[in-house]
Design a protein around this nucleic acid. Structure first.
Lengths: 395, 395
DNA sequence: GAATAGACTGAATCAGGCG
DNA sequence: ACGCCTGATTCAGTCTATT
């Protein structure tokens, strides 16, 4: 297992050598793709080119404050998170840490990139407030509901059965971030994906164990959780970065889903385990990864194109679905309303539809219909024909 | 309808007169019990005796800061929360407001008292961080999952389907707070009550309307939510205070459940409506007070769950029962048709099944089959497996 | 009166390309 | 940067009007 140290990683990238056993060419802007960078995440992030990463997933230390050992009712000790990396002197220290890595992440994010952070009530409120203070723009908070959480042993609180993720854009007003709405909806019984997700915790075969059978990492996240995050907010080929890679779940899932990854981890044991894990992952075939051409991304067709291609003749009468409103197709691609309200007014299919309904806006492609042998059909069916003809021609 | 103004309330309490139609004696320490105090909550809280309240439920302004108008796909306007009381100049102003009311609440809380605050991602992170800064001690964060949230109309985010509550003790190491563990567990099919709760939003008869049929308050909370809070963290006869009473849900439920209430509200319209509502509430007989609402849900399984749980691998070929039609499972949970009609088209299991058959609709669960050692089996059998696993997890 | 269709509603930080 | 135009987008439920 070859693991690249930070300085070496940069050199290796520049020369285009293989870092992880798969082909890992350096991107034009010098990103060390498909690599684990070892060291402090702020230091490593500051060496990466600015505006180069599409998606960041961060699972920072939780700042847990257990007041001593936690015991089960049978007096056995719970193997809680008490590692040194999870200790902070104070909230101030934790905030300073959070501020530093968030700023470093903001620098490497593309303007269209987004950030996910996962946490529990111990730290997520501080992270969320800092995100807002630093002018990130929260898009959603997502609740990971655990099917099998650890019970509350003392019976003094509710079973802590969830963790919270914050999904944020780089800044207010950020446009063009990736959100695969249609795919998520199609995969969810054709209703919108909600902000509450249900997954089991990571256990069984998926949970990394060392030679002695102990878990390698105390907070290994389930791959299913990362898969939904990555499929939601990135495209195949995008660069996914995890500044607290830990056991490598983000990188392993990113690789499997055909994304490029950059992981940062300062603990050698974790980095070694993550590298071995990533090396064993195979990327799914392209066909299984292809993104559906969404309606939003489909090529734009001008109404004019229907006329130019002879699918619609000037002078044709269009109507609404109930054939109450009428409008005539003009040679210049505008419609002329022939019924009130708006009688005699001229506008695009969208404007004319809006005027006819007394609305501010209207999708003329679905509003206007034409008479065919099979009855009234929306002109959108003609647009679909043009689109498929164009696709054929492009082959 | 008699409504007591702040000064009058104090006098009335001292003389033991009735304020709300039920017997409202002044407590030995001079608390104006079962009363709505009108005015700013910080000012009103500062007049109450210290260390006198058992439970505080607070629904502060969320600081939504909406950007513009939002319309539904049918072009109707969403009646958003744009009230003046929800507007703050900046995060700093919101933090100062939060700090002031939290400190005022801390003073009136008994050492054994606890505080609940509800919010959304717009404000809850700031509230949570401030709670920690002020040395409250977070016991749980609770997620209210809405059965019927407003959808995301633009398809640019996940449906915002939950709100978050923080449950906190007065200070670290606080002992003796009320948590009715056994009652909650008994009411929850004998499993511990979890941190994710499922309730519908407040609508129908429960939603207060004015004479013109408009909602009295834009953010009225459901009584079921408050009932679980109050039953969880207070005993009969305890004093429950709400510094942002609004439409009075906290007080109405507290009265029904045999608790004493103090509400603070600065808007006269809200206070009037709350008073009338509270007056109409009858306290339940003692015997009925022991029961809590139960939570049981029939799990709805998305096709995605099969992939996420590793029961179905991306790239797998599915067929119809006669193995004539073929489709490939994609990583994002959609199917890609590999046979005509619809060759190359992509959709959910239901859409793809419909396209393949030339129908408007199709139940993909029973239409699509997978090859197993026992021959073709409908994917519905996998769904059954996920359901039973989830049922096991819930036991 | 019963059944059905259609209107209405809910704490929402809800677009993107081109000129 | 700003403005204009195209054109994509909703779930669970209650209430009202109509058949």
């Amino acid at each position: 297992m070859k693991v690249v140290h930070s300085g070496e990683a940069r050199r290796a990238s520049r020369t285009g050598s293989r870092n992880t056993g798969i082909d890992a060419p350096t991107s034009p802007d010098g990103l060390p793709l498909d690599t684990i960078l070892r060291g402090d995440c702020v230091a490593q992030l500051s060496r990466l080119p600015a505006r180069s990463v599409d998606l960041v997933f961060a699972d920072p230390p939780y700042n847990l404050q257990l007041q001593g050992e936690l015991k089960r009712p049978d007096d056995s000790r719970v193997d809680a998170v008490d590692d040194a990396w999870d200790k902070f002197e104070s909230f101030e220290a934790y905030d300073a840490f959070t501020r530093a890595w968030l700023l470093a992440v903001r620098r490497v994010l593309k303007p269209t990139g987004t950030l996910w952070v996962i946490g529990s009530y111990h730290n997520i409120f501080r992270v969320g407030a800092m995100l807002q203070d630093l002018d990130f723009w929260i898009l959603n908070d997502i609740v990971w509901r655990k099917t099998n959480p650890m019970p509350n042993f003392r019976g003094r609180r509710f079973t802590n059965a969830h963790e919270t993720m914050i999904w944020a854009a780089r800044e207010p007003g950020a446009k063009g971030y990736t959100f695969n709405y249609e795919a998520l909806k199609a995969a969810n019984e054709d209703v919108q994906m909600r902000s509450d997700w249900l997954f089991p915790i990571c256990s069984g075969h998926e949970r990394l164990k060392d030679e002695t059978g102990h878990k390698v990492h105390p907070t290994q996240k389930p791959e299913a959780l990362l898969a939904r995050v990555i499929l939601s907010a990135s495209k195949a080929g995008d660069v996914v970065l995890d500044p607290f890679l830990g056991s490598g779940t983000t990188a392993a899932v990113a690789k499997r889903l055909g994304r490029r990854f950059i992981g940062i981890e300062r603990d050698a044991t974790y980095a070694d385990a993550a590298q071995a894990r990533i090396d064993a992952v195979e990327t799914l075939p392209d066909l299984a990864l292809a993104t559906a051409p969404t309606a939003r991304e489909a090529p734009r067709i001008a109404f004019n194109a229907l006329i130019e291609r002879g699918l619609l003749m000037p002078g044709t009468l269009l109507t609404d679905a109930k054939a109450r409103v009428r409008a005539m197709v003009r040679a210049d691609g505008m419609l002329s309303l022939e019924t009130a309200p708006g009688l005699g007014q001229i506008g695009s299919i969208h404007r004319a539809g809006a005027i006819a309904q007394g609305l501010d806006a209207c999708n003329g492609w679905t509003y206007w219909h034409m008479d065919t042998r099979e009855g009234l059909r929306p002109i959108d069916s003609l647009r679909a024909r043009v689109r498929s003809e164009m696709a054929m021609a492009a082959e």
